[in-house]
Design a protein around this nucleic acid. Structure first.
Lengths: 139, 139
DNA sequence: GCTTGACTTCAAGTGCACTTTAACTCGTAG
DNA sequence: CTACGAGTTAAAGTGCACTTGAAGTCAAGC
């Protein structure tokens, strides 16, 4: 199995070596074996990194992401904490998706809008509160 | 029209007075008239605050939110900047929604999963990469 | 007149997710 | 042997979105 330096991993994963070291210190990445003090990764690290990035980009904090990644397999108390986190995060992700949907609708609406001020646009304001992704036109 | 103190606005809007002052300094909220140096708001501020929160919670920075709110009505150069921002942000919001969707799918999948480690779960990993919201079961 | 509570400003502090810096160790190439 | 590039650490720095602290103002109630 091919061994990868931190630089190669960083380049392939599209982030920096310092971020990888930071993730390791933060307990998101397991400490890989060393070859004369230098970290040697296997390809397996990329799956882990994808999970980390996905969680972080979905609004998880470092601590939540760690629990998400590591608290899963452990015995009952961590697993229970994990389930609690997962349930809470499921709600948060739902809320995030809803806001993103509304923001998208807003951006689309305002793209076609010629009202003098955004807040004067009736349809825009309605779009700000509406859940469906339906598109409206101003004026 | 009823006049509101910063404390009342904060309480009703569900944020702090210091956040409202911060938004004002940052150019997100217009400076309201003062009654013996104290800010007096009208109900109209709540619409503006909703827009601000929506933008911020959808991942806009303070600067982007300001442009979103104020750069809209102004003459051609700001409006052009605004359109550029809106187009870019539309893509970002799409990406955010996609990640949120995938994270949701992941959370749902892992809720039913009994694999020893998350990364050992084939279906979980597939869920991490999949776009549709389809739900899978582990084991 | 004095206290109380909500407000004011300005400056400094906080937490997060990293990044940067300084000083160091290696293996390899010339 | 020296120089180079890529890696190492610990500690300090960064940018964002606010928050907190210190010191002061003001209207209302006792």
């Amino acid at each position: 199995m091919k061994e990868l330096s931190i630089g190669e991993v960083a380049r392939q994963a599209g982030l920096t070596a310092s971020a990888l070291r930071y993730y390791e210190r933060a307990g998101l990445l397991p400490a890989p074996p060393r070859r004369s003090r230098q970290r040697r990764y296997t390809e397996a690290v990329f799956g882990r990194i994808s999970l980390i990035r996905l969680a972080l980009e979905a609004g998880f904090t470092i601590g939540e992401t760690r629990l998400f990644l590591t608290g899963f397999s452990e015995q009952t108390p961590p697993a229970a904490r994990w389930r609690a986190l997962a349930a809470r995060k499921l709600e948060e992700v739902d809320a995030l998706m809803d806001r993103a949907r509304r923001m998208k609708s807003l951006l689309e609406t305002s793209f076609q809008c010629r009202c003098p001020r955004l807040e004067d646009c009736e349809k825009f304001l309605r779009a700000a509160k509406r859940k469906p992704t339906e598109v409206l036109r101003c004026g």
